[in-house]
Design a protein around this nucleic acid. Sequence first.
DNA 1: AAATGTTCGTAACCTATGTTACCAAAGGAG
DNA 2: CTCCTTTGGTAACATAGGTTACGAACATTT
Lengths: 226, 226
Amino acid sequence: MEKWKQLILASKLFQGFSEGDLEAFLSVAKTNRETFQKGEVVANEEMPCTHIGIVISGLIDAQKTYPSGKYITIKHLGEGEMFGEVVVFSNRKTYPATLIAQTPTEVFFLQKEEIMRLQQEYPLLMLNFVQILSQKILTLNRRVKSLSYHTLRQRIVDFILEVYQKKGTLMFQLPVSRRQMAELLGTPRPSLSRELSKMREEGLIDFEKNSFKILDLDRLEAIFFE
Amino acid sequence: MEKWKQLILASKLFQGFSEGDLEAFLSVAKTNRETFQKGEVVANEEMPCTHIGIVISGLIDAQKTYPSGKYITIKHLGEGEMFGEVVVFSNRKTYPATLIAQTPTEVFFLQKEEIMRLQQEYPLLMLNFVQILSQKILTLNRRVKSLSYHTLRQRIVDFILEVYQKKGTLMFQLPVSRRQMAELLGTPRPSLSRELSKMREEGLIDFEKNSFKILDLDRLEAIFFE
DNA sequence: AAATGTTCGTAACCTATGTTACCAAAGGAG
DNA sequence: CTCCTTTGGTAACATAGGTTACGAACATTT
C-alpha cells in the first residue's frame, strides 16, 4: 500500500477502515491529491470551504491576517492532520484562516458532497466525522470552563477538587510538582505558593510538600460562587 | 398534526423535513416519548448516554453536582430544546450533568442507533446533526478567543477592530452604547471608560461620543502580542 | 420650565496577582 | 562530604482593573 494511503488510513476520519475498505472507498469516491510549493496558498481566508483536506506530506501553517496585512500563525498542520472539518458543514462556509504551505506539500482532498453521497455505503465515515466533532466540543468545553474562572483561587480549587474526585479521599498526594501545577494553572509559581499559603492560613486546606488535605470542603466549593 | 410533532419539526435536527417526511420517519424509526414528574431525574450524570432528547413540554434543569453533594444549575432546557447531542457520538459516553425535570415534562427520545440506521433513508438528519455540532464549535471557538485575551485593552482592541473590519473605514460609528459595550466585553463601565481614555491619550484612537477613529492601526494590533 | 431619570466620564481607593529577588531544603555529581 | 543545581517558600514592589461615588450632559415627564 502506498505511503499516502497508509497515512489516510491512520487518520481519525478513516478509523476502523480496513485496507480493503479504503481501496474500495477510493475507487468510488471522487477525491484528489494536490501538491503545493513552499509559500503557496492552500486555502484562502474567506474562500468557500467545500472539502476536507488531509496533509499527506509537508507542513502547512494556518495564519490569521490582521487588517493591516500582518499575520500570525495560529496552528501548524503536519502529516496526517486534517483541516476544514469544522467549517465544511457549518453555516459559515468560509475558512477561518489562510493556509500556506511551509514546505513542498501534498494534500488529500475529499469533497463535502462525496461524504454525503457515500454516507450510505460507508456509514462509518460519517460516524467518525461526528465523533471528531463531538470530541472537539468536549475539549473546547473544558477549555472554556478553565478560562471562565476569574480568580487564581478558583482555578486552584478546581484543580484540587479534580484530584480529590479521582482519589476519593480527603487526603492525597498531588501528582505534580509546584512548578508543573503552576504551569497547568497558567500562573507564576510564586503566585501559586502565596495563594496556597493563604488558603492554609484560612483553614481551607493543609499541605506539606505534596501531601494535601482538604479541611473544609463546603467553603472550598463556595469559592466558585464568589 | 399533533403539537409535539410540530415542535420536533421546528427543531434544528429536523430542519428541512416536510410534515410528510417527519411522519414517514416516525413510522420507521424507533422513538419514544416519556413523561417525567417534577423533580424526577431524566438522565443521571455518569449514566451512559445512548440517545438524543428533545423537550416536548415542560422544563428541565441541567445540574452539576459537587463532591459534597451540592449542585448548581448550569442550564435550563425548555420546549423544543435538545440534549445529549454532543455526547452520544463521542468517546466519553456519559452525560456531563444530571438532568432533572423542574415541571411535569415530556421528552422525545431518539436512539443513537436509529440515527445511524436511518442515515441512508434520511441523510438530511445526519447533515443537520453535523451542522448543529459544527455551529457549536464555531461558537465555542469565539468564546475561547474572547476569554483568551488577558487584558481589558486587548478585548477592547478586538472589539474595535471587528467593527472596523465590518465598516472598512478608519472612522466609524459604534453601533452600541458604552454600557452595552462594557457588557459585551465583560467589564464594568467605568473600567471601560478609563481604558478608552488612556488609549486616546496614548494616541491610539480618538473618539467623541460614538464616533470612533483609528489613529494607529499598527500599534493597535501590536497590543495583541503584549 | 422644573423635576427626574439615564448615560457617561472621572477620580479615589482597594485587591488580586504578576514580577523580581532572595533564601532554605533536598537531591545529585564530583 | 562538599559543591552545585533544582525546587519551593516568602517578601517587597508594581500594575491592572474592580468598586464606589459624584457631577455633567442630555433626554423624558409633568
